[in-house]
Design a protein around this nucleic acid. Structure first.
Length: 294
DNA sequence: AAGATTGTTGCTTA
DNA sequence: TTAAGCAACAATCT
């Protein structure tokens, strides 16, 4: 469930910690997630460093110092990227608030643990661990051309200049699918997952079952504004932890306290007090207030 | 103990 | 040809 705000939090954390550090070794614990053989994968990384970290929606791409290749990482449902410095301190001493013991518990014990699929070692500086309970995530090498091709197939990115009302309208235009399904579709709008779609629709007063092409202009405008604000605020609070998500220091996100409907089925709507319903829409558990969302 | 679970792809159906 | 719906991926939790 890392969605845009969670992935962006990890990106910013890692930018401070791993840029320019030489990769000394690569341990692949689960071959499935690297999408190539171990030798090729390790050869592409060893001896190089990361010069930058970019993001498109929920996809991270680490630029390599060879100026040719990128390491693409997608966390899918349960992936975590956790950096441990040379002294064994999780997150490299940054933003450590809670006790380290509870943190270790949260990430499944000392690293590497049974869910660690990949470790990228930076000599004595530290190690980046990729944990993933369900093994849906991946880490693979791609060159600039391939990355460009992947980005071409993706939708508009919120929080960038292309996320104008006009472009948002175009991204929604002429589709009979429900607005919930449409907002989840990464070919049109990037970075929203189940949590933020439910929240955005609540904040916009739009029923998730509404057909996309039946939305009024004012509703699209509202939704556009809401999505921008919601994502900004969620990043500010370092994302939402519902079950597995942690930042690069193994810490939970703090946005959960602001969730209005997600995970609150049966509780009362914060606006009107009506019971929040949970239905299935677009193949996903969908939370909404039947009174506020028309 | 069957059914549900956060993301995405690709197959099937219409 | 296109779009919508849904199983599959793997593991865990209820």
């Amino acid at each position: 469930m890392p969605e845009l705000p969670e992935v962006e939090t990890i990106r910013r954390d890692l930018l401070e910690r791993i840029i320019g550090k030489k990769i000394s070794a690569v341990d692949v614990f689960e071959k499935k997630i690297i999408k190539s053989d171990r030798e090729t994968f390790a050869k592409n990384l060893s001896g190089k460093s990361f010069s930058d970290i970019g993001r498109a929606g929920k996809l991270l791409f680490f630029a390599l110092s060879d100026r040719r290749n990128f390491l693409l990482i997608h966390l899918k449902m349960t992936g975590q990227l956790i950096y441990v410095d040379g002294k064994g301190i999780i997150g490299g001493g940054h933003s450590l608030k809670a006790g380290e013991a509870s943190m270790l518990e949260k990430i499944g014990g000392a690293l590497p643990n049974k869910y660690t699929r990949l470790a990228i070692r930076f000599g004595r500086s530290g190690t980046l661990y990729f944990n993933d309970v369900r093994k849906f995530g991946y880490a693979r090498i791609a060159d600039g051309e391939e990355l460009a091709r992947i980005k071409e197939g993706l939708g508009i990115e919120p929080l960038t200049p292309v996320f104008t009302l006009d472009n948002f309208k175009k991204a929604l235009a002429g589709k009979k699918k429900s607005i919930k399904a449409r907002l989840l579709d990464q070919k049109f709008i990037l970075g929203l997952g189940n949590i933020y779609v439910d929240e955005a629709l609540f904040l916009s007063g739009i029923n998730p079952k509404r057909k996309t092409d039946g939305l009024k202009n004012v509703e699209i405008k509202k939704l556009h504004t809401v999505i921008g604000g919601l994502i900004k605020k969620a990043i500010k609070y370092r994302g939402t932890t519902f079950s597995d998500y942690t930042d690069a220091s193994g810490q939970k996100g703090n946005f959960s306290q602001f969730l209005q409907v997600y995970g609150r089925a049966g509780q009362s709507c914060p606006t009107c007090g009506t019971k929040i319903l949970k239905i299935k829409e677009a193949g996903r558990g969908t939370h909404f207030c039947p009174r506020c969302q028309k």
